[in-house]
Design a protein around this nucleic acid. Structure first.
Lengths: 203, 203
DNA sequence: TTTGGATAATGAACAACGTTCAGTATATTT
DNA sequence: AAATATACTGAACGTTGTTCATTATCCAAA
């Protein structure tokens, strides 16, 4: 009686089909400009069908968010590999900033877009926490080895996250136009500012 | 022949009537949840009338934004009064954070909401630049007196702005739920983190 | 004071949106 | 083969921002 299992499999396959199409369109046009009707068209189903698999557009956002956190975590693991805690912290911060610059629409729906945060969500919590823990672990290491001017890990985490998120999000909302002369200078300026910050808080 | 002048006055009065109603509703419900029809109802005019004074909803946003920058500037002038540059910087950062916590919807439409930034806009540019220059002047003072671990004013400005904006905006999007235990602890934690940061970059 | 042309305001109409649901088609079980 | 359960549809609802022909109001000239 493998029929119920096949049904189950088809159900998750359909969810993944929808999620994949949504991710593609969110990346290209952003969350707001992507319509349910558009997603339905892309996968050649009726709009109503999507609501058989997702409660509403927000639930679709959460699904894509979880995926996005996974991607960021992969980038972290790939880019921040140094055994030197300070160097690793630098790599981590660079990776974060570059991720934001290279995937603006993705960064948007992960950290900027307005959507009630259901922290209870399993996948979301896990992947989001993975990214955060990567930073926390790195900072714990730095602080234990007395390399930074901070002693509290939570405070240090908040500081560095706020700094890099601030840089990326202000840029994404064009608020740095007044300060940074040319558009193509932005990546370098952001990285430089972050490194200046790290240098300042390094013992 | 004061008729053209009266017409002019009535025109700006109408604009202000609309702007005031928009500001009120943006503050209460946010930009997205405020409809043109709602604003029209509030001032007892037809929806179409609003379009005789504003090109679209975004132009209304710009008007309110300019107003909001003015408010922030007033807060700066009122709160950051110390003659000690470092203390003044601290006051400035506190004022910024508190402004964001006390006026979440306003902060949202000033710095987070998606809207094409027409930096050419007069009022907008002036008020926005006022706020930024307040910070730049303060930091210039600090750096000239060799009180900070940075030498470049632009970098320093970017650093501090990113940090406080990062703190406020991450909190506004509920991203600190994972890190900060209780909701009411947030203001203290944000201020503490900012002060830790300032302490770290102070010589 | 009446008339004619500018100006101001209206509100119905349009297209697009998220979402729902009665109805239809397909698949599974009896 | 019939009855039941499941999957899907697409028209419809209530919003939204925005437009525009129509109507009302005002002001200057006759």
């Amino acid at each position: 009686m493998g029929v119920t299992e096949r049904k189950e499999r088809e159900k998750t396959e359909m969810r993944e089909l929808i999620t994949a199409a949504a991710m593609k369109m969110f990346l290209e046009d952003g969350y707001a400009k992507t319509s349910i009707r558009g997603i339905a068209d892309a996968i050649e189903y009726s709009p109503g069908t999507i609501y058989l698999y997702f409660k509403d557009k927000d639930e679709l956002l959460y699904e894509v968010q979880a995926d996005a956190y996974g991607r960021l975590f992969e980038v972290f693991k790939k880019e921040a590999t140094s055994t030197d805690p300070l160097e690793k912290l630098n790599q981590l911060a660079r990776a974060y900033i570059n991720f934001g610059l290279n995937n603006p629409e993705l960064y948007d729906l992960m950290f900027i877009i307005r959507a009630p945060m259901n922290v209870d969500e399993e996948l979301h919590k896990v992947n989001g926490a993975n990214c955060l823990n990567f930073l926390i672990d790195c900072l714990t290491d730095c602080i234990n080895k007395d390399l930074l001017r901070m002693t509290d890990v939570q405070q240090a985490t908040l500081q560095i996250w706020s700094t890099v998120h601030g840089l990326v999000s202000l840029n994404l909302r064009c608020r740095l136009k007044i300060m940074v002369e040319s558009e193509e200078a932005v990546p370098l300026v952001l990285i430089k500012t972050m490194e200046d910050y790290l240098a300042a808080v390094t013992k």
